[in-house]
């Protein structure tokens, strides 16, 4: 909690990412109704993408939730692409499914390759690069935020943008 500068640096980095990716992310902002309460969370979802999966059995999804208000919790995720969307945390190569993820007040929740990821199982079809996948993020306080997740190349790296 005491490391405010580093969090800000993270936010700046996330901001830079948003700009880099903004061409494809027009549908990603969340206009949520909860902004009237000063203690309520104010969420924005950016940088969403899905690496083109190798098969129709499984795909990953990534995004960043930025909260400029109070804390919230990501409780579940749904999508047209799959009836089984689960949330996972990876630490040192160990992948664990988690029931929920905390969104810290005035902080960020990152789903990034090598760390947290969404897992879509038993896909309705194998999404190709250039497609957009509709994904709903369900939050305890903010309700549902719908995002359009662009399918990128299988080797897409958000740091380089290709």
């Amino acid at each position: 909690m005491s490391r405010r500068p580093s969090r800000r640096a993270g936010l700046l980095a996330a901001g830079a990412l948003v700009i880099a990716a903004s061409g494809t992310l027009s549908g990603c902002g969340s206009d949520d109704s909860s902004s009237s309460s000063s203690a309520g969370p104010e969420l924005k979802v950016t940088g969403a993408y899905m690496p083109a999966p190798s098969t129709d059995t499984m795909a990953a999804g990534f995004f960043t939730v930025t909260d400029s208000g109070g804390a919230d919790t990501l409780t579940s995720v749904t999508s047209d692409l799959s009836d089984e969307v689960t949330m996972h945390a990876t630490e040192d190569g160990t992948m664990r499914e988690k029931e929920s993820f905390a969104v810290p007040a005035e902080g960020t929740l990152d789903f990034a390759s090598g760390g947290n990821h969404l897992m879509f199982a038993k896909l309705t079809h194998k999404p190709e690069q250039g497609e957009k996948v509709s994904v709903e993020l369900h939050f305890a306080k903010s309700g549902t935020v719908r995002i359009s997740m662009p399918v990128k190349s299988a080797t897409y790296n958000p740091k380089t943008g290709h």
Binding site: P51, P53, S54, M58, A59, A60, H88, T90, G93, M95, S113, G114, H117, M119, F120, A154, T155
Partner: peptide, 9 residues
């Protein structure tokens, strides 16, 4: 879904 296919791809 994440690191394994990314590495192999």
């Amino acid at each position: 879904p994440d690191v394994c296919p990314l590495t192999m791809n």
